[in-house]
Design a protein around this nucleic acid. Structure first.
Lengths: 345, 345
DNA sequence: CCCGAGCCTGACAACGTTGTCCAGGCTCTA
DNA sequence: TAGAGCCTGGACAACGTTGTCAGGCTCGGG
């Protein structure tokens, strides 16, 4: 059933179009388009009439139609693991800031560490024809992105490299950071040092574990299997892992925590122990300086990572950048006390 | 210059369309559409051929065109103040979770507390034809949204009510929470209680101030002007405000902090003072339980607020909800030590 | 053997915008 | 005063998809 065109703008749920504006202003369709886009070639008087009609009808340009016509959406997608994780807030924010500077909107979604969900999200963003993608990968195979890359969708991976495709990646020096953190404990006299980290299938976790092993090996310290706890997720399992390291045979005198969630849980565990155990964590945590003792951490700069990634993205879109690169940003050891506690025995 | 249609899919930067897929599979355009959308009425054999062409070409449906045709975008917009603020991470996440459950994507942006930027963002989202909006308002006049509301854009305000328009709002009981927090300090013997908060033009800040005043009045305590510090933003100014309250004439024995950023700074200030000063903060902060003393707070549940708002949004879209409402969620006083310190003098 | 029903399939218009191109009226100059 | 050029405005197609509708095919029953 065709709608009477003159009433369509008034129907609930229907928005006025340029056609409606043109009719009301008594001008042609294209003239409205010119006014809306600030293009030259419109008399001030005509412009005024058009603007009046726009205001009266509450017209807003339909960007879907615009995108369809122009090809570019002026939006980029950000896929991350979990917005509730304090690491991603600043990252997301800095990506948005860069996007904004380039006049682009940010669409984002969380993968919840689920590779399938990551792919689903990324493809949904591609269907929206985002101009570019910043992805913190959950999965380890990104060949599904090949058609997108070929079609010119700018893509930058963050925090972990892409799997099986050649793409830009911006990440921290996880290996070096962990190695330095553990070396710091060794320098303070520790030899029995525990490591608690995420599943090694996650790149960052694997790299940090590698850093731990390297530091221990450099110091000529053989690592007991009971000192390493890998793939522990969730506070309860971290807690149990820490307890075992502390109270089992051959107990550790220091712990290196593989990420901020682990660090927080370990702090809680240590608070319940009389024995003073040293702790260095990967990732900074808020208020770390106010705890007793302050928490020594290997900090990565989430804002810097996000900014670097987003800027590379837009340089890809400019055409300034072509060859994919791997960019490693340095970490920083921040000593606050917990990492400088000497061995207890 | 017209492109040869058969090559267009191969050009860099151009994506294959349904037409390309149809040509390759030797079927009609509409048949491809049917396969892509899982519509019935396609022979398995035909479907296989189409699917093969889709995979071979790396075709992805262009959602912009789809939106243009269908009218709904299956996306909602979230405008908040600052993603780096830990309060908004969980909020954003819970909104996204609900959106996902309804098959919608989340587009978000930060207003940085700037009313102009808020409007700009909101209108950009409307131009994208998001189905709905969750807005944490920075400004206090939202009449610019009237055409959108009339056009059927679902809208829910969060954390602060909309200005000059009738719209749903989901927020915490800021007044009651602050009153309870201050009453808690009074119950522990304090009379000289300081208040440090944001600009009173921000609704939450005004309400919390009102709660502070109400609690003091209920207890029959006259409030000295030097005990109230309003509109302080940024760590440095908060620090100075706290110092003045603590060391000026008529010094306070307790401080009520109007938001999480203020709380953190006040903790830092108090750590530098020998005198023990009580503290209750509005908003929970991470690791508050591990500090010495633990930080007593009036907590609001950001996830709950986000979820409630998003669910209302989708009920508006269902048509289940029509009349705008104001929903106040209760706060919770969490005692951890800092609020139970007795007056020092 | 023929006809109708039912199932597949494809042609076509429409969604709202922008790029192209042309027409008409104006001004300016020779 | 006429011709050239400029400025303004509008008609039209195209972007890629989906809804409508009609045509052709097969199969079963009369």
């Amino acid at each position: 059933m065709p709608q009477p065109p003159l009433r369509s703008a008034a129907r609930y749920g229907t928005r006025p179009t340029m056609k409606d504006v043109a009719a009301r202003a008594g001008v042609g369709l294209k003239t409205v388009s010119r006014v809306v886009n600030g293009e030259p070639g419109v008399t001030p008087e005509t412009e005024r009439r058009v603007q009046e009609a726009i205001d009266a009808l509450g017209f807003r340009r339909n960007d879907s139609a615009r995108v369809l016509r122009k090809g570019r959406t002026a939006s980029i997608g950000l896929v991350l693991e979990d917005l509730a994780d304090p690491f991603y807030g600043p990252l997301s924010r800095s990506v948005e800031e860069v996007a904004r500077a380039h006049g682009a909107l940010l669409i984002n979604g969380s993968s919840a560490e689920d590779p399938e969900r990551e792919q689903e999200l990324v493809l949904a963003l591609c269907a929206r024809r985002v101009d570019g993608l910043v992805v913190i990968p959950a999965g380890d195979d990104h060949r599904y992105l090949e058609p997108e890359l070929k079609a010119g969708v700018a893509t930058v991976f963050v925090d972990r490299p892409a799997g099986h495709i050649d793409a830009d990646v911006v990440l921290s020096d996880n290996f070096g950071g962990a190695r330095d953190g553990v070396a710091h404990l060794i320098a303070h006299g520790h030899r029995r040092i525990g490591f608690i980290g995420d599943m090694p299938r996650i790149h960052t976790a694997a790299e940090r574990l590698r850093g731990y092993r390297a530091a221990m090996e450099d110091a000529g310290i053989p690592v007991a299997g009971s000192w390493m706890s890998l793939g522990v997720t969730g506070p309860e399992r971290v807690r149990r892992a820490a307890e075992e390291m502390l109270t089992g045979p051959d107990p550790v005198t220091a712990i290196f925590a593989g990420n901020n969630r682990v660090t927080v849980t370990v702090i809680r565990v240590l608070a319940g122990h009389a024995r003073r155990v040293a702790l260095v964590g990967f990732d900074d945590i808020e208020l770390a300086d106010l705890l007793q003792p302050g928490v020594t951490v290997v900090a990565q700069d989430a804002s810097d990572i996000g900014r670097t990634a987003a800027e590379r993205l837009f340089r890809q879109l400019d055409g300034t950048l072509v060859t994919p690169e791997r960019i490693e940003l340095p970490t920083r050891l921040i000593t606050r006390g917990s990492g400088e506690i000497p061995p207890a025995d």
